[in-house]
Each structure stands twice: as structure tokens, then as C-alpha cells.
Amino acid sequence: MAFGDQPAYLRVAGDLRKKIVAGELPPHTRLPSQARIREQYGVSDTVALEARKVLMAEGLVEGRSGSGTYVRERPERRPVVRTGYRSVGESTPFRQEQADPRVKGSWESRSEQGAATAAVAERLRISVGEKVMRTDYLFRCAGEPSMLSTSWEPLALTGRTPVMLPEEGPLAGRGVVERMAAIDLVVDNVTEEISARPGLAQETLALGGVPGHWVLVVTRTYFAGGCPVETADVVMLAERHRIAYHLPVK
């Protein structure tokens, strides 16, 4: 389809998008009403409504009950820096993921035993239904929600050891590398996959976003001698984060 053959609602949305990006419609400005869009662009109510829906789906505007549709303030994207994994005792994974060490990070967590699903079992190379320790995290930067993480560790390795609970015991919060070293498992490899998808409602709300917005997902697995010892999904709002790689050249 040629550019000029775009549906009317996309052409209207495109023009309004340009005005938002250019600052002609700055944050917190009320978007022209449906009637105003209809008159200004010579389109139907349906086209005007669909154009607004496009801008809402893109996260450029938001509806306010009983007030109208307003231009959203675009947050500055915080870099999530991937620099490789450091030696035991230097840093927790969360601190490594923060680009600015001056930003005070904190987290909440909850651990419980469960059975490995098919997806988790495949990543940990164990049988479906085997016991795992699941830990859910909510990470904050300067008090604001930043990331969600869910990790799974096979209890066949960590059960009945001092590190069975990631956030309790003598090595609470010290990170997977150091915790596993305490039970004679040397983490020597880490794999990561990064993907994007529409966020689940509970994810985006927990992160201070709007249902329907996209999230970045870092799927990470730690290995010790080829054996997976932990796997995790780290979820963050795409509009607030960017992945930055700084990798050494050997």
C-alpha cells in the first residue's frame, strides 16, 4: 500500500502524532475533541475515534474519565546496561542492571515452593512437576517501580541448604553467583534472550504503567558446568527502559 493510500484514520493519527512529537501539542495538553477532529480533517466520527485509539495504543495520549484525552508525558528511558557478570561478591544482579549507581535501588520479594511447569522445566532441564523455589520480585529505583522478576531454582540442588531461600539466610540478597558458590556450584555461564510483548494488565499496573503497553522481557539462565541452576524472567516497561550492551572484545 502506498503512503498516500493509507486509511483515513492513520493519516489523521499521523498528523496528530507529528504535532505531539514536535511539541505543538505538549504533555498534559487536551487532544482536540472528536468533533474538532472531524471538522478539522473532514472525516467521520468513526475515523476520528479510530485515530484517537491509535494514539492511545502507541502510548502518546491517555483518557481521563469525564475530562477528555490528553497528551502523555514521555518518560526518559533508563538504560539497563548489560556488561557481563562480575566476580563473586561485587554486585547483585539488580545493581548491575542499573546504569546510575547514584540511584538508590530497593526490592520486595516473596518465595514459595512449587512444581515446575513445562516451560520452566525445559529451561532448567528437569522433569515437569519437579520441585522448584519460585521467587517474585518488585524492584524500585528512587522509590518508583522499575522491574518485575520471577526466578526459579531447582530444589534438587538448593533444597535443605543455607541458600534454599534467595532472600533469607546468611547469603540473603547476595545474587545467584555467590549463593551457588556457597554450595560448591561455580556459575561459569549465563544466557540471556530479550523479547518484547504486550504487557499483562497486572504487570503494567504493578510497574505504574497502563494496561496494553508493551514490556521488555529479559529471559536469563545461570549455568554451573553446563547445569542450569537458576532461570528468571525480568520484565520492564518498554517506554521507560532501553537495553544497552557494553561487551569486551577478546
Rank of each mutant, 00 (worst) to 15 (best):
residue 31 L to C: 07
residue 59 G to V: 00
residue 56 M to E: 11
residue 53 K to T: 10
residue 47 V to T: 08
residue 41 Y to F: 05
residue 61 V to A: 00
residue 32 P to S: 03
residue 57 A to N: 12
residue 40 Q to T: 06
residue 60 L to D: 03
residue 46 T to I: 12
residue 57 A to L: 08
residue 33 S to H: 00
residue 52 R to Y: 00
residue 46 T to P: 01
residue 40 Q to Y: 14
residue 43 V to F: 15
residue 51 A to N: 02
residue 51 A to S: 09
residue 55 L to M: 03
residue 34 Q to R: 03
residue 38 R to W: 07
residue 46 T to Y: 02
residue 47 V to W: 10
residue 58 E to S: 03
residue 52 R to S: 04
residue 32 P to R: 01
residue 33 S to T: 13
residue 34 Q to V: 15
residue 32 P to T: 04
residue 46 T to Q: 11
residue 40 Q to E: 15
residue 43 V to M: 09
residue 35 A to W: 03
residue 31 L to I: 09
residue 58 E to N: 05
residue 48 A to M: 05
residue 45 D to W: 11
residue 56 M to K: 13
residue 44 S to C: 07
residue 32 P to M: 00
residue 35 A to E: 14
residue 60 L to S: 02
residue 51 A to M: 03
residue 36 R to N: 14
residue 41 Y to M: 14
residue 60 L to F: 07
residue 40 Q to S: 12
residue 62 E to H: 10
residue 54 V to E: 02
residue 38 R to P: 07
residue 62 E to M: 12
residue 34 Q to P: 09
residue 51 A to W: 00
residue 57 A to G: 13
residue 38 R to C: 11
residue 61 V to F: 04
residue 46 T to W: 01
residue 39 E to N: 08
residue 46 T to K: 14
residue 31 L to Y: 00
residue 50 E to F: 09
residue 38 R to H: 05
residue 62 E to T: 06
residue 62 E to N: 10
residue 49 L to V: 06
residue 42 G to V: 01
residue 57 A to F: 05
residue 60 L to V: 07
residue 33 S to R: 01
residue 57 A to C: 08
residue 49 L to M: 10
residue 46 T to L: 11
residue 53 K to R: 07
residue 51 A to R: 01
residue 51 A to V: 06
residue 39 E to I: 01
residue 52 R to N: 05
residue 54 V to C: 04
residue 55 L to S: 03
residue 34 Q to E: 15
residue 35 A to M: 08
residue 35 A to D: 14
residue 51 A to E: 03
residue 57 A to W: 03
residue 34 Q to K: 05
residue 39 E to P: 01
residue 54 V to I: 06
residue 40 Q to A: 10
residue 44 S to M: 06
residue 34 Q to S: 13
residue 44 S to E: 05
residue 59 G to F: 02
residue 45 D to V: 11
residue 52 R to V: 12
residue 54 V to R: 00
residue 61 V to Y: 02
residue 44 S to L: 09
residue 37 I to L: 15
residue 44 S to N: 06
residue 52 R to D: 02
residue 53 K to G: 04
residue 62 E to W: 03
residue 34 Q to G: 15
residue 35 A to G: 12
residue 39 E to K: 10
residue 43 V to H: 15
residue 39 E to V: 01
residue 38 R to K: 10
residue 62 E to F: 06
residue 37 I to Y: 09
residue 53 K to H: 03
residue 37 I to E: 07
residue 46 T to E: 10
residue 53 K to I: 08
residue 49 L to I: 04
residue 31 L to V: 09
residue 49 L to D: 11
residue 50 E to R: 12
residue 49 L to W: 14
residue 42 G to W: 13
residue 43 V to K: 11
